[in-house]
C-alpha cells in the first residue's frame, strides 16, 4: 500500500497537477477566444527554458525563477495574438488552429536555437525525501502540489470575484451578448491570454523540476492537455483541472503491477494513456464530465 502511494499515487497527483494547470489555460482560451490553441504546449516549453536561463544566469532557485517564466510566456502569447490571431478573428476556428500550429513551430525553433536539443535540468541538489505520515515523499512534489493548489485558488478568486473574471465568463457563455452589453472584448481576450500563459509557465517550470527540460517537452504534453480539457468538458476550466488530475493519476497508475508483478501497461506506452482517455471520452461522453461547449 505504501508502495502504491509513494511510487504511483503521489507522482500521479504531481503529473496531474501539471496537466491540470496546462489544461485549465487551454480550456479558458478555447472558451473565450474560441479555438484549439496548438501553440499551448510550446508556450510551456518556452516558459520552462526562460526559468532555466534565469536560474542559471542569476543563481536563483528554480522556484524563484517562475516570474521569469511568466515574463517570457505572457509577451509571447500576447504577441502571437496581436500579430496573427487578431487578424484572423473573423476566420473559421480551423484557420486560427492552423495559425496557432505555425506559432508552435516558431516557438519551438526559438527554444532549439537558444538552448540546443540536449535535455537539461534545473540542476537540483539531491534532497532526501521527507517523511510525512510514515510515507516517503519528495520535497519538490509537496511544493508542486501546493503551488498548483495556490494557482487554482487565485484563479478561482479572479474568475468568481472580479469584474474581469465575470466578463471572461460572459464571453465564454455568449460572445455576442457580451459585446452588445459593453464587455471590452479585446481587453478580455488579452486577460485570457495572460492567465493562460502564466498558468502554463508555472506548469512548465514544475514539469522541468520534476523531470527535465527538452525543446519538445511542451508539445509532448499538448495531447495530454487537450485530452484533460475534453474529458473535463472543453471550455470549462474546473473541468479541465479535474480532467488533468484524473489523467495524471491514470498515466502513473497504468504501470502499476496488479497481476503477478507484470505492469498493467508497459511504461514505454505511458504516453498512450492520454490518447486512450481522449478516445474513450469522445466515444462515451463527448461533452465531457461537465458538459463542455457544443
Amino acid at each position: 500500500m505504501a508502495e502504491l502511494i509513494t511510487f504511483y499515487l503521489v507522482p500521479g497527483l504531481v503529473l496531474g497537477a501539471i496537466y491540470a494547470m496546462s489544461a485549465t489555460g487551454l480550456s479558458l482560451v478555447y472558451g473565450v477566444i474560441r479555438f484549439a490553441n496548438f501553440a499551448h504546449g510550446d508556450l510551456m516549453g518556452l516558459g520552462a527554458y526562460a526559468a532555466l536561463a534565469a536560474s542559471q544566469g542569476l543563481g536563483l532557485s528554480p522556484w524563484a525563477s517562475i516570474p521569469f517564466a511568466a515574463a517570457a510566456t505572457v509577451p509571447a502569447a500576447l504577441a502571437a495574438d496581436v500579430l496573427f490571431y487578431a487578424r484572423l478573428r473573423r476566420s473559421l476556428p480551423a484557420v486560427l488552429l492552423i495559425s496557432s500550429f505555425g506559432t508552435a513551430l516558431m516557438l519551438r525553433a526559438v527554444i532549439y536555437l537558444a538552448f540546443g536539443p540536449t535535455p537539461q535540468t534545473f540542476g537540483r541538489a539531491i534532497v532526501p525525501p521527507l517523511m510525512l505520515w510514515g510515507l516517503r515523499i519528495q520535497e519538490r512534489h509537496v511544493w508542486i502540489i501546493a503551488g498548483a493548489a495556490a494557482s487554482a485558488a487565485v484563479l478561482h478568486l479572479i474568475l468568481a470575484r472580479t469584474r474581469a473574471g465575470r466578463a471572461m465568463r460572459a464571453m465564454a457563455d455568449d460572445p455576442d451578448l457580451a459585446r452588445i452589453t459593453g464587455v471590452p472584448t479585446e481587453a478580455v481576450i488579452r486577460l485570457t491570454w495572460t492567465i493562460a500563459a502564466v498558468l502554463v509557465a508555472i506548469a512548465g517550470v514544475f514539469l522541468g523540476l520534476d523531470t527535465q527540460l527538452t525543446p519538445v517537452m511542451g508539445f509532448n504534453v499538448l495531447l495530454a492537455s487537450f485530452a484533460a480539457a475534453i474529458l473535463g468538458g472543453i471550455g470549462r476550466p474546473w473541468g479541465a483541472a479535474l480532467g488533468g488530475l484524473i489523467l495524471g493519476l491514470a498515466e502513473e497508475c497504468s504501470s502499476y503491477p496488479v497481476v503477478g508483478g507484470a505492469p498493467l501497461l508497459e511504461p514505454s506506452y505511458k504516453s498512450a494513456v492520454a490518447f486512450a482517455v481522449l478516445i474513450v471520452t469522445l466515444i462515451a461522453r463527448p461533452q465531457g464530465l461537465f458538459r463542455g461547449m457544443g
Binding site: L88, V95, I98, G102, T103, A104, L105, M106, A109
Partner: peptide
C-alpha cells in the same frame, strides 16, 4: 523550422 511556422502565418 522557424521559417516553416512563419511561412504558414504569412500565407494565412
Amino acid at each position: 523550422l522557424f521559417l516553416i511556422g512563419l511561412a504558414l502565418q504569412v500565407i494565412l
